[in-house]
């Protein structure tokens, strides 16, 4: 493992310890209540035509922990992410973040409240430089107001502060040499790092990572893992979607399992890996390697085409 100063490799850091102790008394059943939940969802459902993509009864996410969301393809993990962060609208359900309801709150306001997400397919802003990407993440910028934008003296100082903060983050993510390159010139793994660093510029309380490891060069995986752990050490809550079981076991404090839109199990990683129901659900039809986004799209389209074909024949 390369030197990662901020992240002790030893399995037990104070924060990790605190997270594990918080989970000590929690029952390992779907919908179990946590000592200090930051996010609570109730009855969130989303249907596409006749298909119910998400139907989550009750879920709580413990503050200050790293929680993994796993499940076979088509289980509704990404859709659930989109719903929680305001990128999609559920047919039904409520959810609160820090005790405040987020139902019907538009995505940009969700982010402002401290819940920031990344995307499965990275969204680096190609024709902006790495530094511009970073600065975009800063909140409460005076210069983002039309009238003040014309007068640089009203925002220059704040911009310098933000730049300094961005430089620190870039250094931590080892992107400082790329500072003035267009983001579009970077490798897939570097874009993932940039996206994570950019999300941190928002100053979030909770970070939602949609498949942070997908498409990342194995050489970068360890360093990305370290960065995810570091988020918890900095006091943030992390919820992430992942396929790679080894990675889930390595970094998560708690695991949620989704299948066919529902949360079918939750518990500590080791218990979950041994859970019969989980193995059944997970290995059911999808024993082989996880599908990528394109394949998933294809499967969905095939299912839809089939549906429409049936309608057409009637």
């Amino acid at each position: 493992m390369p030197a990662e100063p901020a992240v002790p490799t030893a399995s037990l850091t104070p924060r990790k310890d605190a997270a594990l102790r918080a989970f000590a008394g929690v029952e390992a059943v779907p919908g179990s209540s946590k000592p200090d939940p930051i996010l609570v969802a109730d009855g969130v459902t989303r249907r596409f035509g006749g298909l119910t993509a998400v139907d989550v009864g009750h879920v709580e996410i413990q503050r200050g922990s790293i929680t993994a969301l796993i499940g076979p393809n088509g289980a509704g993990k990404s859709t659930f992410f989109n719903l929680l962060t305001g990128f999609d609208t559920p047919d039904d359900g409520t959810w609160t973040f820090n005790g405040q309801s987020l139902a019907g709150v538009p995505s940009h306001k969700v982010a402002r409240r401290g819940m920031v997400r990344t995307f499965q397919l990275t969204k680096a802003l190609s024709r902006l430089t790495v530094m511009q990407n970073m600065l975009l993440g800063a909140t409460g910028q005076r210069g983002e107001n039309f009238w003040r934008a014309i007068l640089p003296m009203t925002w220059r100082k704040q911009e310098q502060e933000n730049t300094a903060r961005a430089e620190e983050l870039l250094a931590r993510f080892k992107l400082d040499k790329k500072r003035d390159d267009f983001a579009g010139t970077m490798s897939g793994g570097q874009r993932k790092l940039l996206e994570m660093a950019r999300a941190l510029m928002v100053g979030p309380e909770m970070v939602m990572l949609d498949e942070p490891m997908a498409g990342v060069n194995p050489a970068l995986t360890q360093s990305l893992l370290g960065h995810v752990k570091a988020l918890r050490e900095d006091g943030m809550t992390v919820l992430f979607v992942e396929h790679d079981m080894d990675m889930v076991r390595d970094i998560s404090d708690w695991v949620l399992v989704m299948a066919q839109g529902r949360v079918i199990a939750e518990g500590p990683p080791d218990a979950i890996m041994a859970d019969e129901a989980v193995i059944d659900a997970y290995l059911g039809g999808h024993h082989d390697a996880p599908l990528d986004e394109a394949q998933e799209q294809e499967q969905l389209a095939a299912a839809e085409a089939e549906l429409r074909e049936q309608e057409g024949d009637r």
Binding site: Q297, E298, A305
Partner: peptide, 12 residues
């Protein structure tokens, strides 16, 4: 119609 729905799928 298949291509209109999803060119990648149609091609595959």
């Amino acid at each position: 119609r298949a291509v209109s729905d999803n060119p990648a799928l149609a091609a595959s």
